[in-house]
Design a protein around this nucleic acid. Structure first.
Length: 197
DNA sequence: AGCGAGATGAGCT
DNA sequence: GCTCATCTCGCTG
């Protein structure tokens, strides 16, 4: 059930990002499972990717975990109020990561709703990278956490049929020049928990 | 239903 | 000082 380290340790991060669709992201809370199926991801390709925090070999305290072993959580803070959850991939020294942008709630939906009282409709609960972090209780204390541990982990769940896989350019990275055009965003077609159609 | 702006702080140049 | 891997609200049409 649990995704093994090998899954994350491969070199082709775009492929891993695609394969994460349909997997279950689980963050237990006071003995209960709170989880959702991953429906939208984005790949960030290390030092050569202008959109990545690690572009140009910029290694800082913030992105340090991107440089470490695959299968760990990279959680960072943006826009003064939101966290973003990523999985580190590739080999140590190659700072690749995959941003999770949307999940479909599966377990512990009431807990998620308590955490996001402003979400009126179910589809507003986890349809975006900041939203899903609030719903799952993910913050920077989980940065560097092992995805093969007990605090945050990913399990096999569903296989998305090839016909439902979609890809396109990444969101919110217009500053990245040509790299902004790369088709490194992956999502499940017609799933309401994708942040944008 | 679609757009513009404000919130709010860490990390860079 | 300014830029963000965003979200929500309030205004317009």
């Amino acid at each position: 059930m649990l995704i093994p380290r090998k899954f994350y340790a491969r070199q082709d991060t775009a492929k891993i990002a695609r394969e994460l669709l349909g997997k279950l992201l689980v963050v237990p809370s006071s003995g209960r499972r709170v989880s959702g199926m991953i429906v939208e991801t984005e790949a960030y390709l290390g030092e050569i990717d202008r959109a990545a925090h690690s572009y140009g070999g910029r290694r800082t305290k913030r992105n340090e975990v991107m440089y470490g072993e695959a299968g760990f959580a990279y959680v960072f803070f943006v826009y003064g109020m939101y966290n973003q959850f990523n999985c580190v991939t590739g080999r140590p020294g190659t700072p690749h990561a995959i941003l999770i942008r949307g999940i479909e709630p599966v377990e512990g939906i009431e807990i998620m709703q308590e955490r996001r009282p402003k979400a009126k409709k179910l589809k507003d609960l986890t349809s975006g990278p900041g939203k899903l972090c609030i719903a799952l209780g993910i913050d920077r204390t989980l940065n560097g956490e092992d995805l093969l541990g007990t605090k945050v982990f990913i399990e096999r769940y569903k296989t998305i049929p090839a016909g439902e896989l979609a890809s396109g350019k990444r969101i919110g990275i217009d500053y990245a020049g040509e790299d902004a055009e790369l088709p490194l965003r992956f999502w499940v077609a017609n799933n309401p928990f994708v942040s944008r159609a």
